[in-house]
Design a protein around this nucleic acid. Sequence first.
RNA 1: GCUGAUGUAGCUCAGCUGGUAGAGCAACGCAUUCGUAAUGCGUAGGUCGGGGGUUCGAAUCCCUUCAUCAGCACCA
Length: 637
Amino acid sequence: MSIHIRLPDGALKSFEAGISVREVAASLGSGVKKNGLAAKVDGVLVDLSHRLHRDADVEIVMPDSPEALGLYRHSAAHLTAQAIKRLYGGKAVKLGIGPVIEDGFYYDVDVEQPLSADDLGKIEREMERIVAENWPIERREVSREEALRRFEEAEEPLKLELIRDLPEDAVLSIYEQGEFADLCRGPHVPSTGRLRAFKLMSVAGAYWRGDSNNKMLQRLYGTAFASKPELDDHIARLEEAKKRDHRKIGKEQELFLFSEEAPGMPFYLPNGMTIRNELEQFSRQMLAEHDYEEVRTPFMMNRRLWEESGHWEHYHENMYFSEVDDVPFALKPMNCPGHMLIFKNRIRSYRELPIRLAEFGQVHRHEYSGALSGMMRVRTFCQDDAHLFVRPDQIEEEIGRTIDLIDRMYKVFGFEYKIELSTRPEQSMGAEELWEQAENALRSVLVERGVPFRLNEGDGAFYGPKIDFHIRDAIKRSWQCGTIQLDFQMPEKFELSYVDESNRKARPVVIHRAVYGSIDRFVGILTEHYAGAFPIWLSPVQATVLPVSDKFAEYAVRTKKQLRSAGIRADADLRDEKLGYKIREAQLRKTPYMLIVGEQEEKAGTASVRKRGEGDVGRYGLDEVQAMMLEDIRLKV
RNA sequence: GCUGAUGUAGCUCAGCUGGUAGAGCAACGCAUUCGUAAUGCGUAGGUCGGGGGUUCGAAUCCCUUCAUCAGCACCA
């Protein structure tokens, strides 16, 4: 019996039924035969050894196909496991799982001996050896019984656990390469010799099955590519990202510091404070345009309040406490209870709603020591927080307005962001119907506006579902910044009410929202986003005046003063150094404008302008340069 | 919190198997008065994260503690 195979270009070819993909590939020319890695049969990825029994669309996966990367990485993970087993003893190494991840792969192993960075080189060399041996990688489908027997013999308790947890009807397959075998769904590249470009990156602990109650295994991270140049490129990108690290730039540019005396609590240096202040000022301007009112609430309030709000029950592990005069206090981890008290301060009419209370609220949250990370994860930070008290009929419009506000502000920074909708978590409070109503409200706003979003099941706040805005940092870690949270619980807890049209008490709904999220984290993200070259409106020093020599110091100072009186953050570098030296330094500090002044400039009342990223742009009158800068600042470019 | 690594001058880092700490940059001083990414010479600067121990002797070995980093777990 013959079958028809349709190729991606639409061509139809006939083969005997039962022919392998490998043979189909071979019929397509020597290049495909030699370099084919796997195939997509009717859209499903399979090994070259896969046999075809009926008509199908077949596409051979070549090294440059989008699917190839996953194959290389998955096979490289097996290669890693095989090498470790060879080096540390087949039965001394218990295999966990070895999946492909965004930039590579990892393999979790249970080995007595802690693996160090030095061991990685050793393992890599063994991997190279296995590549040189060029073992075919072969798939075998096995019965559950056979799988259990094999991994029992191999003394692989973790694999046995995985097999036992697979559904009854699951097809089990084992991939073998030389003496090594692994339970795996596949597919893989056809032989170890195909792996030409891989590298082990790091080793770290990871709990078995992601549960901190389980044993901690050792996780080897690695990456693999189709070719060496692509691998080198990837490594170069990682190094580039490291240069953007906000901790490094924060130190170099004197933005902020951390002290052992206050772990996870940033100190702002004058430069960093300037950036923060600009961010706040921008935010205040936006708040004014969107009819918010700014308030401020105490850092510390009686524990009673937190019991009332539910924070004590749901959040107290992350809170800081203090007791003075036998009165128990808690440092606020959130601003909401304070804002509830403000709302309750007097009777509210339905005509007043929505009431939008904003606060640059400093909160304290006790994070686990291991979670701290520069400005990205701290124990005290300032939220650009606000609570919108709305009538039920205003919910959707208000959420829409908030999305607009966030989008508008992010555009100024040129941020790409992703939206997530997070639903009810396990640890939460309130009735099922209210949650459902809240989740539906958020979802329908997103759907109506046609914004793409990802559903994040069970990741909501304990008091309500939320829409989160995620931004990526230099090393591709994603951080939640903006958030819109719908809350029917706090109004209940605090018995909030307003007087409605028919003079009856009605319950408002609260929307929690933040744009920057944590201003501190946002400063960190911006630092990496701009690689320290902040746009002029944020730049701590907007212009440096550089006299060619001491003789023009007086004119330099005059120039600086003029710019300052126009509201520009200008400095003059009067040190007894050569011009080239001062330019180099200002350049390294990423100063947006350098004004060079010498004899000709002084005579003409001008300055030679050097713009960051452009270099020397010529001579301008001082008023002209000043206008240029003010325009850039105003436009936030 | 867990696993592993790291902590030496303001910064970046060197210091082999234990013999009493060094470089570059920065700072300061002097000379130089300079035209678009580093002028030269000189000076000063450290109880080697903290505590304890082993030793004749510890930056180096051991214990403990703190902080930081990578990752895991956590992230209302």
